[in-house]
Write a protein that binds this DNA or RNA. Sequence first.
DNA 1: GATATTCCGAGTGGAATAGTAGGGTATAGA
DNA 2: TCTATACCCTACTATTCCACTCGGAATATC
Lengths: 145, 145
Amino acid sequence: MRLSTKGRYGVMAMYQLALNYENGTISIKDIAQKMDYSDAYLEQMFATLKKERLVTSHRGPKGGYRLSKDPDKITVGDVIRALEGPIEFSSCVGGSENYNCDKSGFCVTKDIWEQVNDSINQVIDNITLGDLLNKNKNSKIGQRS
Amino acid sequence: MRLSTKGRYGVMAMYQLALNYENGTISIKDIAQKMDYSDAYLEQMFATLKKERLVTSHRGPKGGYRLSKDPDKITVGDVIRALEGPIEFSSCVGGSENYNCDKSGFCVTKDIWEQVNDSINQVIDNITLGDLLNKNKNSKIGQRS
DNA sequence: GATATTCCGAGTGGAATAGTAGGGTATAGA
DNA sequence: TCTATACCCTACTATTCCACTCGGAATATC
């Protein structure tokens, strides 16, 4: 019961884009370098992020990616769900395919999974990339380098 | 990012034990029958549940399992963590092994994962097996069969 | 001592994860 | 127009994890 690397690195990568939001595009190679991570794999993730319209791209030299909208308008939840699909703590509740258990009508546990889903979504939908930027700014006060 | 079958079926199985709490032990075969599930696999789970002292066992004919304490004293969180390990939405935060990312000191996302962990735990730690019993009782009012 | 049950460890097929690899396409700048 | 730089796309692969299954030993009841 865990986020895969996609969600984890996806949020980090989107944060890099947020840092660069005012400056225009940034290339995958640069992001990969900053994150110290495989650019080929990041590339795949960005294909998805683009499909979900969270980023825009520009080809050729000086090309790269950019957030499609203001960092304050993109939540961590948007990023995670784009890369990992809808949150479903238990496979029987919450998702897209939502396989239908024949006992769901009177299942005593169904409610629990729904509550967990809601609580996860509530957390990740209330943190924007802009929030992360602010946090970073604040935490730098009184810090070296 | 999902509970495995262990957590899902574990809670259901423990609920069966809760239903039977006043009557003494119940065998894995019976539980498997009621849940319409593989008894060999349930067996494995019960080994873990016993190791974590959530159930007690008795061998031989008329043997079986029983909750180690009152249904009100066992939370869904106890069961899930026993079977799946500690809740860690992201692998870098919250767990036992807790692999140490070299950037964790100033990682902007670490906080998010901690918040998610907390919110999940809060939900599952506030629902006891006793609660599930009560819910079932109430939902039976006005219901056929 | 026959039978029902828990206990224990090993094995296995399939799916998902976490990538690699390699070629194609657009475009900025010389 | 050429070339280097970037995105774009599809396929492949090694490893790990999941969801079991199986066989047999230990133990308790009648």
